[in-house]
C-alpha cells in the first residue's frame, strides 16, 4: 500500500481499523486494511462490486458472527477498545453501532412499535411518546407519519420505510451508524431526502456509508475511502479524492473508466 495515498484525518477517530483481514473459508475478502473513522463526519466507502466494502462495514458491528465460514484477523477499536475480541459481547456492541441495510427492513409491526422495540428490549428508561417523536423528527419522517403512528410499517413507501429504519437506529442513540448502500433500492426523490438526512445527522452521529454511487459519495461525505479487490487503495478528504487523487487507479475509477 502506498503510504502517500492514505491521509489520516485530523479529527479524533471513533473507530479505528487496524490490519483487518476477513476470510470466507480460504477466500480473503478484506486484505490487511487500516482505516480510521473520524467523529461526527460522514465517511464514504466506494469501489466496484465485490471489492469488500460491505464486508468491512459488517465487521464493524460484528455481523459476521452469524456466518460460520467467516474469519476475522486484526483489530477494530471503538474508542480505544478492541471490539473483535471474543470476550466483547457483540450484542451490546451493536447497541452502540447501529446499522441501516441495503433494502428497507422494517419489522412487521406498527410504526410506533418499530421505533420502540430496540430501546424497550434493551431496558432503556425512556419516555415512549417523546422518543418516538424525537427519532422520527430526526429522521425527517415525522410530518409524513405523525397521523398514522399505529399503522403497519409495511404500508409505508420504500423511501419512507428506509427513513423509518434510520429513525429506529437513531432511537438507540448509537455512537456510529453504518449504512450499507441505503439508497440502492430507492428512487431518486427518496434518495435525495435520505442524503439531506445524512447531512443533518452528522452533527450528532458518526456515519460510515458504503455506496455504489460516486456522485452520492461526493455530495455527502467528508472523507472517502476507495477499495479495490479487498484492499484500501486511497483514503482522504472527499474533495481531494474526487479532484486530485494520488493514484491512477483511483482516478480511473472515479472518472468511470472501470468498475
Amino acid at each position: 500500500m502506498n503510504q502517500q495515498s492514505i491521509t489520516k484525518p485530523y479529527e479524533k477517530a471513533v473507530v479505528e481499523v487496524k490490519n483487518l483481514s476477513v476470510f470466507f473459508n480460504q477466500n480473503e475478502a478484506v486484505k490487511k486494511v487500516n482505516l480510521s473513522i473520524p467523529i461526527n463526519k460522514v465517511t464514504a466507502i466506494i469501489g466496484p462490486s465485490g471489492c469488500g466494502k460491505s464486508t468491512l462495514l459488517r465487521s464493524i458491528n460484528r455481523m459476521h458472527d452469524f456466518e460460520p465460514i467467516a474469519r476475522l484477523e486484526g483489530n477494530i477499536f471503538l474508542e480505544g477498545e478492541d471490539i473483535l475480541l471474543k470476550s466483547v459481547d457483540a450484542v451490546s456492541l451493536r447497541r452502540k453501532i447501529g446499522m441501516v441495510f441495503q433494502k428497507p427492513n422494517p419489522f412487521p409491526k406498527t410504526i410506533y412499535e418499530n421505533i420502540l422495540w430496540g430501546p424497550k428490549i434493551n431496558g432503556f428508561k425512556i419516555n415512549e411518546d417523546e422518543l418516538v417523536e424525537q427519532s422520527l423528527r430526526q429522521a425527517a419522517i415525522w410530518d409524513e407519519v405523525k397521523g398514522r403512528l399505529f399503522d403497519s410499517a409495511i404500508s409505508l413507501s420504500g423511501g419512507q420505510q428506509q427513513r423509518l429504519c434510520i429513525a429506529r437506529t437513531i432511537a438507540m442513540k448509537p455512537k456510529v451508524i453504518l449504512m450499507d448502500e441505503p439508497c440502492s433500492a430507492l428512487d431518486p426523490r427518496s434518495t435525495g431526502r435520505i442524503e439531506d438526512l445524512i447531512l443533518e445527522l452528522k452533527n450528532e452521529y458518526t456515519i460510515v456509508i458504503v455506496t455504489h454511487n460516486m456522485q452520492q459519495a461526493a455530495r455527502i461525505s467528508d472523507y472517502t475511502a476507495f477499495f479495490y479487490d479487498g484492499e484500501l487503495i486511497e483514503y482522504g478528504n472527499t474533495s481531494k479524492i474526487f479532484t486530485t487523487p494520488v493514484l491512477k487507479q483511483t482516478e480511473d475509477y472515479i472518472s468511470g473508466r472501470f468498475g
Partner: peptide, 8 residues
C-alpha cells in the same frame, strides 16, 4: 473486565 464486555 473490559468495559465492552461488562454491558450485558
Amino acid at each position: 473486565l473490559s468495559t465492552q464486555a461488562q454491558t450485558m
